[in-house]
């Protein structure tokens, strides 16, 4: 023996999984939706995404190195995810300096002020998004017309904003003009933020992540089911005033939120029971904001609110113990 024997406590083997691999799998899962957004909104979409990713990575590196004085951990891929998610949550014509501010809020306030990866309470990309939404409401809600849609090339409002406006003015749902059909919504033929438009591709990414065991089904399914049931009740009561549940599910970033943002490991609960409660909470709050709130859509706020509840869920909801209580 040339070298000393190593002694360590058991176990002596480790699975081949690593945090980095998990992060990169999330990135792969987002690529179809990203490609679609480039297809829909043109090269602007790519510009926004690249700026957001570069800014998030740069801010993480700089803050860790010069403010926190720790070894930067940008290689783990989490900053890239935050960057892509932030880009997915903004319109494609957003000026570059607003994106920078959003990235700074996401990384600085949302993530590193809590201590970095694993310690943040709120989803960083959503912190960035909401920060921008409140600071630059005009830029954040002026969506460019989509390049691909033959019918509605000049529309600048999202379907949900259209509905909100019309219902406020007393126009019944059926008479609203320019509302995309369900098929268009599924493929992504509608205006909106970068990543929220194509419901199908987002679901595809979600299935990939479940298959690769990056996420479990509990959170997305409980959110979607809650939205379906809750908005279904209102639709059943008055279809004139309330839009149908399928419409709710496929618009306003609900898919994006349910699959990619609510499932963020760091900020979601740690066991299936708590995850389902968390999902139901997000679904209820989202629909409540959409129907009764001032904003046309509410998944961002819903996730952030439930993020805050997560520690409490972890504390009170325990996994099923072997051998009962």
């Amino acid at each position: 023996m040339s070298k000393l024997l190593t002694v360590s406590p058991s176990p002596h083997v480790h699975s081949s999984d690593s945090t980095q691999k998990i992060m990169y799998r999330v990135i792969y899962a987002m690529i179809p939706a990203l490609i679609w957004s480039v297809f829909m909104f043109g090269i602007d979409a790519l510009r926004v995404t690249l700026i957001a990713v570069a800014a998030c990575v740069a801010f993480e590196y700089l803050i860790q190195k010069y403010l926190m004085k720790v070894t930067p951990s940008v290689t783990d891929g989490s900053a890239i995810i935050t960057g892509i998610l932030l880009a997915f949550n903004v319109p494609s014509n957003l000026p570059w300096w607003i994106i920078l501010i959003g990235a700074m809020a996401a990384m600085g306030i949302g993530k590193l002020s809590f201590g970095g990866l694993g310690s943040n309470i709120f989803n960083p990309a959503l912190v960035g998004r909401v920060f921008l939404l409140l600071s630059f409401p005009v830029q954040m809600t002026s969506w460019p017309g989509i390049k691909m849609a033959a019918v509605d090339a000049v529309s600048t409002a999202t379907p949900l904003a259209l509905i909100k406006e019309s219902v406020k003015n007393g126009v019944p749902i059926a008479k609203i003009e320019g509302l995309p059909g369900l098929g268009d919504l599924a493929i992504g033929m509608n205006a909106g933020s970068l990543g929220e438009v194509s419901a199908l591709l987002l679901v595809l990414g979600g299935i990939y992540m479940i298959w690769k065991k990056v996420i479990t089904w509990h959170i997305p399914v409980s959110i979607l089911a809650t939205v379906l049931v809750f908005s279904g009740i209102f639709w059943g009561i008055n279809p004139e005033m309330y839009v149908n549940p399928a419409f709710h599910i496929m618009t306003g970033g609900l898919m994006l939120g349910a699959i990619f943002m609510a499932t963020d490991m760091v900020t979601s609960p740690m066991n299936p029971k708590a995850q389902i409660i968390y999902g139901i909470g997000i679904g209820l709050i989202t629909i409540s904001i959409r129907m009764f709130g001032a904003y046309p859509e509410g998944i961002s706020f819903a996730i952030l609110i439930m993020n805050a509840v997560t520690p409490l869920l972890n504390y009170y909801i325990k996994p099923k113990r072997f051998g009962g209580q």
């Binding site: 998990i22 989490s78 479990t216 490991m265 740690m270």
Partner: peptide, 16 residues
């Protein structure tokens, strides 16, 4: 590295 709260340890623990 830091715990990312992925909850895999919770899901694999045979004692819950």
């Amino acid at each position: 590295i830091a715990c990312i709260r992925c909850s895999r340890c919770v899901s694999v623990c045979p004692m819950g």
